[in-house]
Design a binder for these strands. Structure first.
Lengths: 197, 197, 197, 197
DNA sequence: GATGAATGAGTGTTCATTCAT
DNA sequence: GATGAATGAACACTCATTCAT
């Protein structure tokens, strides 16, 4: 392995270690000592790759977030449209959560501990969703919402994801797990016919 | 003032000070030194009223949450029903937020820093909502959702509140402010007719 | 001992400890750990009395400098005038140095490690000297130097003190000691008749 | 360029870089990282030329000091004698300082950070001065000082140089500059007729 | 019950030095 | 000989908690 490759590897090693520590203990408890010990390098090595503790915390969500978006993009069948497409999107999100149990804390604590990264993550997320919904509008699946209103809807969808994950995708120990079917069903009912009949 | 009254007063003083500090600086930055200084008592005094720093953090959300629920209950016209009742609930929530700018941080950071209190707060919130929605079911305003599904809907409603507050109820400095009308409109459209036509 | 007295005592204890450590090891090697250990208090206690490491370093020279000036003032016979007064001043300085072996390092490293304190110390020193020389001018002991030139002379006198101390008042281990008589004699010869006959 | 020449060049490159860094930031802030970066070599390369950080710091003053002495020797007109020769020496020193703004810090911080080099530098300086003054004695320009006393005078002259440089040869930002004429005049008056008339 | 000085474990960060490539 | 990543000891500083007054 060349020097450059090894450096890249150490960088990733540290990032993965940080992801595990933050996912397990939260940002507040993620000390450099824990991260470097888990990565199997000396504390000083950390500072060859990151400027500060905050620096790696800021890079954590972009790193994981990219993975999540890729997963969802890949999981979504190309030809699926309408409400079914939205349902698939939600299930892909929960599937990713199931495979990456730490992602929930990394994502939702970021508002507090890595606000810039959190804001950027949301910007990207909202932008992607905006394009998806606009295509649905063009296809005639969505009617009667102007652009501003659609943005609010996007926040409602992201919000629902997050709270459903908080309530249903974790057992009493905070570990990840699958989401019951009736949850998805309720979500889809609201999106297709509203709450008030 | 009797000894007991004075003690009660100091207790409340500390709680209010903690609320202000946490609302302004967040849980992580809320040191005993800051809280006691704002309350105008010595650091040692703190430990006559609370077991530990975590103790007061755990009591903060119940204390504030009660205030919020009272505000909403009082604000809701008794005879309002149907979607209009839900709309009034949402606006009462934002009105409370506008008057208590620190509440957003206290509430949403609690998941990280006072998880027990956060869980209990949600239990109470969900319970209240469940009763409200069940009454709507009895009135025939909501149809086709079983009990489990209704719980999911409740989480979606709470989620929407929270994310809308995060996105629309704070200016770029994190200060509170009113929510634009089109946001409420979008929220109500989803609840009354869904997203997909 | 009252609380206040004890606090004052701890403050002085820390200052004395710092003086000893800096005098022995220099500013650069004066760690909080060394200072607090010598003072017999916990590391955290230090920060109840000083804002930072730099803070105590900045206070060291004023604290010691005051002692030195007092010593010289007290040592100088009131009625001594002319060159003999200057000779007595020099010897009083060396006597102080002999009793406070750490003072040399504290004073001369201050230019690097506590520049503000060093500048202020010199300001006070120069001011005092200016008054002394002006009185000698009035007495007719000094002639032919204008105010600007007198200031330069003061710097030459302070310089001589310092370099003589560096060369003659310390043994090979840096410990203090008395200054040989011929040194004083040479100093006085230059001041009374110059170098070039 | 031969291997040996290239090695010599790298050695000098490092020394010059160290001189610039120490002159600008002081010994305490002169890290290997800064020095090697300025020299344009890797950190590891440093240790092919110097044993340690202290090693290069110890070699800095001898390297610069030689330059200063050469400058003074070259500047001094051969046939100048008496007080005028001493005056020329002082002005040559300040001229060197003006051209090498970093030299002041390198020289005067050396007592703290490179004590061996500082002592050796003084030894050389004093030796040179001793020869100069002895020649003046032989020429009959100086009278009434024995050998020991002359050494003290030398220290007084070096001291005056240094303090005058500290006070008059630097602006408020620590940058170098010329010395006012009245300073030289006062210096010469003391040397030719003493302070006390 | 109120006080506030004392405590000490814990943290992020720096940097001279080493050594495999 | 040149490289630069890895090392780990050292340091200043914070803060929840205790306890004698």
């Amino acid at each position: 392995m060349s020097r450059e490759e090894k450096a890249k590897q150490t960088y990733t090693l540290l990032l993965e270690a940080a992801a595990e520590v933050v996912g397990r203990d939260g940002y507040a408890e993620a000390s450099i000592a824990k991260i470097t010990q888990l990565a199997g390098v000396a504390q000083g090595t950390f500072y060859n790759y990151f400027d500060s503790r905050q620096d790696i915390l800021d890079k954590l969500l972009p790193y994981m977030g990219r993975g999540m978006l890729d997963h969802i993009a890949v999981s979504l069948p190309r030809d699926l449209v309408g409400p079914a497409r939205e349902e698939a999107r939600l299930e892909a999100f929960f599937a990713y959560l199931d495979q990456h149990p730490g992602f929930y804390r990394i994502l939702y604590e970021a508002e507090v501990f890595a606000p810039k990264a959190h804001a950027e993550h949301f910007r990207v997320l909202v932008e992607g969703y905006r394009n998806a919904l606009n295509r649905a509008v063009v296809r005639g699946e969505i009617e009667g919402f102007d652009a501003d209103e659609l943005e609010t809807v996007i926040y409602m969808l992201l919000a629902a994801r997050s709270y459903i994950a908080m309530r249903y995708a974790r057992d009493e120990n905070g570990h990840a797990g699958p989401v019951p079917g009736h949850v998805i069903k309720a979500y889809m009912k609201v999106l297709t016919k509203g709450l008030f009949a």
